[in-house]
Amino acid sequence: MILNGIFLVVGEARGPVLATAPLSFWGGYDPESGRIIDRSHPALGEPLAGRVLVMATGRGSSSSSTVIAEAIRLGSAPAAIVLSEPDPILVIGALVASRLYGKTCPIVMLSTAEHVRLARAGTVEITEDLAAARAVLALR
């Protein structure tokens, strides 16, 4: 199945889907160990590197911008993040990392219905449709 999304941060990625509850990167993710550390989060202990994080939105403090930038720098960030509501805090963190370190974490926004479809998928490949300026998500 193919879904069309909007890039908040442009980039290509592929990986297994981790669909979960909104995560605050600040206080919720340790970029050094690369694992979710929020004790109240359903995916506590899960690593994010190499996976496509699918959640409705980000959550919590603006300090999450620095934490995601740190995770990108250290290679422990998700392969991509797919949201159903824009999250300016994650967008800024990913953009700063791309400018400072030359690597980033693409962030895509999907409609709620398509987001639900993606959440049930096993793997996803995200590519850029340059002509239409859209994100193309191929589900497997």
Partner: peptide
């Protein structure tokens, strides 16, 4: 940032208060 917020345009500010001087990491 403005695009992600869905803002129509920019405005001027007369001052800023910066919270980024507390060390959170290399970034």
């Amino acid at each position: 940032y403005g695009e992600a917020l869905g803002a129509p345009r920019f405005i001027d500010v007369v001052g800023a208060h910066v919270d980024g001087c507390l060390y959170h990491g290399q970034a």
